[in-house]
Design a protein around this nucleic acid. Sequence first.
DNA 1: CGGGATCCCGGTTGATACTG
DNA 2: CAGTATCAACCGGGATCCCG
Lengths: 115, 115
Amino acid sequence: MTIEDCPIRDVLAGLSGKWSVLILLALDERPHRFGELRRAVSDISQRMLTLTLRDLQRDGLITRTVHPTVPPSVEYGLTGLGRSLVLTLLPMIRWADANHAAIRGARRGFDAAAA
Amino acid sequence: MTIEDCPIRDVLAGLSGKWSVLILLALDERPHRFGELRRAVSDISQRMLTLTLRDLQRDGLITRTVHPTVPPSVEYGLTGLGRSLVLTLLPMIRWADANHAAIRGARRGFDAAAA
DNA sequence: CGGGATCCCGGTTGATACTG
DNA sequence: CAGTATCAACCGGGATCCCG
């Protein structure tokens, strides 16, 4: 009865970081190289980008292709599984965009009432 | 240019906890009392349930109704905003359910290859 | 260029005990 | 029943330096 037995919690855990969803969205547009991703998801640290990418790859959501050039070049892209996940994420993204103002308003109201 | 200016990150931050989504789903079925929620989301600590509920209420996603009985009874339910959010979440939930096995398989493959 | 290794801090979480 | 208070542990994440 560990955490992995609950699909929701197990899958969500991987997306719970601050960065996974942003990275998946960037890769949904087009494949990105490491440095491109770093700029696309501005203010992610090199370390967290590396770690998050490895987790996503481990879960079979993204591909990692090394081109043995000098200097090296690594391309990341979505797998079929990853693409199908992003599709289910898009409604939530749009909701976040559309209702961000309402949430911020609710927060202000709540905080004011608490004071 | 703080974090709240990005709708995705701001909204996701609230759901990134381990518990928010589970609670929202439980409340989507029907309103729950505190103790019911605690059993529904088994192995959440009392403390985290309290904290998460307050955050969700602060964001305008759930309602909190106190019935001044003895002993006290508090009912939580979804707001309209909350219900609309859950609707956008459901595709992702179903995806998690359907693809949990695939993800676990990918993980095993990745870990085996790394060894 | 694309990482890995290390250090370290601070917020989040859990256990436990107490309360109206 | 539905919380609040306090304390300790943990771990996500940033900074920095190094490497092929």
